[in-house]
Design a protein around this nucleic acid. Structure first.
Lengths: 383, 383
DNA sequence: GATTGACATTCAAACGTTTGAATGGTATAC
DNA sequence: GTATACCATTCAAACGTTTGAATGTCAATC
């Protein structure tokens, strides 16, 4: 009774008085409109019942809400609806140019479906990975999309997450063996594309820098390279094959490329092209060749993988294999949304999506000079 | 009474029965422990009262919580506590290498203070900017850190946010005039650093590519350049001064640099060094010079600004001015936390923090060749 | 043996929403 | 004039927490 009286008073003159602390709530709007909270909620959340609310009332409510600066409290809504409309996105390292386009693809798909994404950056740290995973659970993400890295090799991710039956989709790694829908580029096809490009330019003595053993991409790319080479009747010289050491920092590829370029030159072996595991490695190779006074592509062609920004803006531009990252993000999000929508009928199979990569030709690759002019890359290295 | 009976039944055999749908809640744990929700809450949230709970009880509760896989519902908690412990971070474009280190700095500071960050990426789109801002309000972020861009020139950001008295800190732009605490690099000092570097190497004929008019950094950098030049007794040749057109895409700098390099060479003017507005512009310049057969730094030195990844891994490595991005993020977060903690005593002044930049010398800059050898950059351009 | 105090636990209300069921109207059909 | 249907709105409970106040128990003090 007392409360009623207060309400009446407030709704008169001081109806619009701003709460000094905290946000405007439904009941503020309701009071100002002389209506119940229910009615206001029904209108503002566009519930089915709002069809039964008089048009004039609806307008009055909306106007007042706007006037007071009402914004629904998503926490309260989630609590009541038992749906958060939120998908967690756990990226292994946002500073890796690989992640951003994927995340954007995800974002695009989620937005369209009226979902929010909750993005977190594990910074290639196991500890953060676990912490954020917990946070996503506590925020009641309805699903989690993981952008993978070899750092999280044997995490108990699956146990922890699936215990709460939150669906998972992984990007960049094939985990269908563990019943997780996976989206990744067809690395094998990519490796094949890369070497066929060099072959078609006329290269025969091609050095290959393979990825670190722990990285999932390494093996299939190498497979693709080998198969395409033998299909073209070329046997790769084992002396020209290198492998990056395992490193946590995704940027270490540059150092690796630099190192192997130096080693290759020091060995005096003959080669006219280098197939690097990724773009940073390729840039390291260019640096190494350049230090020795060799020119790219004049003395040696270099091909990367991924098509990150530095590959495009370096001079020469690095010929590379582009991953359809945006598309991968879109696809991952779509699969996730499907999984979330039919969470009851959970018997659905984990699916594997391998997307086709694309060759981007820039100026770091060209036909090798004719042997006649005595200037193969490995040749004029005197020391 | 009835309820009590039910509880007893459940807490017997089926106590651990997994909820088929939804998450484990406090009451699940409480039931399994034969305790009230209050007690369990007090223990698991480490409330002050938990000192009065018997040690044995505490252990029992914790064990059961772990066993059931209980994770507190942050929505419910936020609702009740009326604190979300969340700071929104609105970046203008996560694909700009500028943003990531700032965000990480923020993240680091927030984490230490037991706050969460809610990161969103406006992708330089006004529409997204507004949408995300609304979302941050609805998620009841207690404060918002904006990483700025010229795209949001005259947004009603301030009105909308401050209406709900949510404190704001901005990174990368001085908005103290509007009473917003601002954290940015000392662009003027940076410009001065850059040109002094070229001057100290002996350059006199220096071309400058200024930033787009709309961008806040442009003017102070230019000021710093001019002042340092005149302090050294050099008057910059107006014919060697250019200005990037205004572009939304932060990556357009590369095209701009390329364009002006070509223009400069075509003009036949003499110059030995180029001071580019940012690293991408510098990389564009290198590309342009290189196209014309000139070498960097042999024929011309190039200096950038920002120190983003591509500047480090290109060959030659780009000499540049590093912004202390991580530190800027840390600082912004600290100021934000202060503002949030004392939100009542809101009379506090907006503060301006200008952080000192740092010169990073790489191989894109060197002393100009002696005029004697007749090889100034602009000189041997015959066409 | 009453009072005090410390201890261990629980009650009950609240946070801001949503929503199935209920209410009190008014108009139409029989 | 009663039943039926519809319309506009409200009730009240619930979502999962937290927390000030209350409860009950036990031992020690006056």
């Amino acid at each position: 009774m007392l409360r009623r009286v207060q309400n009446e008073q407030l709704s008169g003159g001081a109806a619009l008085a701003k709460q000094e602390r905290g946000h405007v709530t439904l009941s503020d709007v309701a009071r100002a409109c002389h209506l119940s909270v229910s009615t206001v909620s029904i209108v503002l959340s566009q519930a089915p019942l709002s069809l039964h609310v008089a048009e004039s009332t609806r307008q009055r409510i909306r106007a007042m809400a706007a006037r007071l600066g009402y914004h629904p409290d998503l926490h309260a809504r989630s609590l009541r609806r038992r749906r958060t409309q939120t998908i967690g996105v756990l990226a292994y390292d946002m500073s890796d140019p690989f992640c951003i386009p994927v995340v954007r693809g995800i974002e695009e798909a989620l937005q369209e479906a009226q979902y929010f994404s909750l993005q977190v950056d594990a910074q290639t740290q196991r500890m953060l990975f676990d912490r954020y995973l917990r946070m996503l659970l506590e925020r009641r993400a309805e699903g989690v999309i993981v952008i993978a890295s070899w750092v999280f090799e044997e995490t108990n991710l699956l146990a922890d997450i699936e215990k709460n039956n939150v669906p998972v989709v992984i990007v960049g790694r094939d985990l269908t063996a563990r019943r997780i829908t996976s989206v990744l580029v067809d690395n094998q096809a990519g490796g094949a594309l890369a070497i066929r490009h060099l072959l078609s330019l006329g290269h025969r003595r091609i050095a290959v820098i393979r990825g670190p053993e722990e990285m999932f991409d390494s093996e299939p790319r190498w497979q693709g390279i080998q198969e395409a080479a033998s299909a073209a009747g070329l046997r790769l010289d084992p002396q020209l094959i290198f492998q990056l050491p395992s490193q946590v920092d995704p940027r270490s590829g540059f150092e690796g490329g630099l190192h192997f370029a130096r080693e290759l030159l020091a060995s005096g072996r003959d080669f006219t092209g280098v197939l690097a595991f990724d773009d940073l490695t390729a840039l390291g190779v260019v640096r190494g060749l350049s230090e020795a006074g060799l020119r790219v592509p004049g003395d040696c062609s270099v091909v990367g993988f991924d098509d990150i920004l530095p590959a495009a803006v370096a001079t020469p531009g690095i010929t590379t294999i582009r991953q359809p990252l945006h598309e991968m993000g879109l696809l991952a999000a779509q699969r996730m949304l499907e999984a979330v929508e039919r969470r009851n009928g959970r018997g659905t199979k984990a699916r594997l999506h391998k997307l086709a990569p694309e060759l981007i030709v820039r100026t770091s690759s060209a036909s090798p000079r004719a042997k006649a002019d005595g200037k193969g890359a490995g040749r004029n290295l005197s020391r």
